[in-house]
Design a protein around this nucleic acid. Structure first.
Lengths: 231, 231
DNA sequence: TTGCTCCTCACGTCACGTGAGGTGGC
DNA sequence: TTGCTCCTCACGTCACGTGAGGTGGC
């Protein structure tokens, strides 16, 4: 039984953070008759988990979710894995740009060039996005989805039985979730489309394969794995 | 001369963001007699700079600073470069941890190990930070506990099956009782900690081994014996 | 004149930090 | 009894987003 200051000390978090976690339902220490908080060993375990999950970049809301329902953990972690990949890409781009500017003989001019390039790239992206009233299919899936596809493919190449690829399915599902913005109908439709891949016309197989920058045979192996894993 | 909606459209930022930049002194478009904003080409250049600098991770405050005083640019960029390096390290650590958890045959157990390692690492950092005035963890257990540990270890060396060491367990338990001053919660916690020794982070194994003036391998043999004898 | 655009508050988000003003515990 | 700890508001941070309620422009 710790009082709040001692507990804060031993966990290394601030008293204010403890109040905050409690407000958000992550902790519920006992109270003395006078309303003073008393923390136990169980609270300590909880706080250590909170801190560790925070270090992975989870929000308090996500932490509360997995605390209430442990089965959500894999999906949440898979989703976080993706988010981190995207953040890392952004940071890498920024670091490369900063290096280029810093090492240029005319940093100010280099920055101006970067500003111009960036504006151009944003404009291009916008144009692509609305090339033909929003209804055109993209030429390629998103970079993160492409990367995940390749991971699954590589895992299947190593281990055709699928054991190595199986852990990646959660990320695939999380990707679907994110892509559809949580819209259930859209998600169901996409799943059905994949489940039906064996009936796709050849032209569609080639097209979808091109979206994933691969050949139809590889696409089919991955599709077969994903679909049969769900059956 | 653009009005705000057209300007927002052509720069790709929202109207609300334009208001926000203005409140923070980053933009100051002209106004019509009725108070309507009118944006010029100079504003467009400014906004492109703002967006590009934001993509490097600068805050609006930093952007305002370099806008007012261009000589600050190199220092701000250098500082940002450092901040990004640190952020990237954190992300890399998180990604590695997530991968390890995901690819483990027991993800839940892997997460528990990570939580333990993280708590341990934080504790170590704290200890290092205040390595000074008497607050450090002890370097050695009490002489009587050390002696008992050696007795158990010697008995196990003679008879790895544990028959010779078994009678010493009662003394080990009595020692625990005495150490915790009879506090039940603390005793339970200590027992659990030992029961969980297989999940201890490497750093903790080395540390505890040093408390008993032995090497990790010997500590593990004794711990294994104590725990399995209770199961 | 009718919509539509634009205006300015004001409050919400996220994970806390920073006081303020008051009360219990040793 | 005196400090010290703890309590609960309430507001600030950051970069906007989301309305609300009102007015100008075409």
């Amino acid at each position: 039984m710790y009082r709040i200051s001692a507990f804060a000390q031993s966990t290394g978090v601030t008293v204010k953070a403890l109040y905050h976690y409690e407000r958000n339902g992550l902790l519920s220490p006992r109270r003395t008759a006078a309303g003073y908080r008393r923390y136990t060993h169980r609270d300590l375990i909880r706080v250590q988990r909170i801190i560790a999950l925070k270090s992975l970049g989870l929000s308090l809301k996500q932490i509360a979710l997995v605390q209430r329902d442990g089965t959500r953990l894999p999906a949440v972690l898979a989703q976080q894995r993706q988010a981190l990949d995207e953040t890392r890409e952004k940071i890498d781009r920024a670091v490369r740009a900063l290096d280029a500017i810093e090492h240029d003989s005319h940093p100010a001019a280099a920055l101006d060039r970067f500003v111009g390039e960036w504006a151009w790239a944003r404009g291009e992206a916008k144009r692509q996005a609305m090339a033909a009233p929003g209804l055109r299919a993209p030429d390629r899936v998103s970079a993160s989805k492409l990367a995940l596809f390749r991971e699954i493919k590589a895992a299947l190449d190593r281990d055709p039985a699928g054991a190595a690829a199986r852990p990646l399915l959660a990320r695939w599902d999380a990707m679907l979730d994110q892509e559809t913005g949580g819209d259930v109908d859209t998600k169901t439709a996409m799943r059905k489309a994949w489940a039906n891949w064996r009936n796709w016309p050849d032209g569609m197989r080639r097209y979808v394969a091109s979206l994933y920058a691969t050949e139809p045979a590889a696409l089919e192996r991955v599709a077969e794995f994903i679909v049969s894993a769900r059956e």
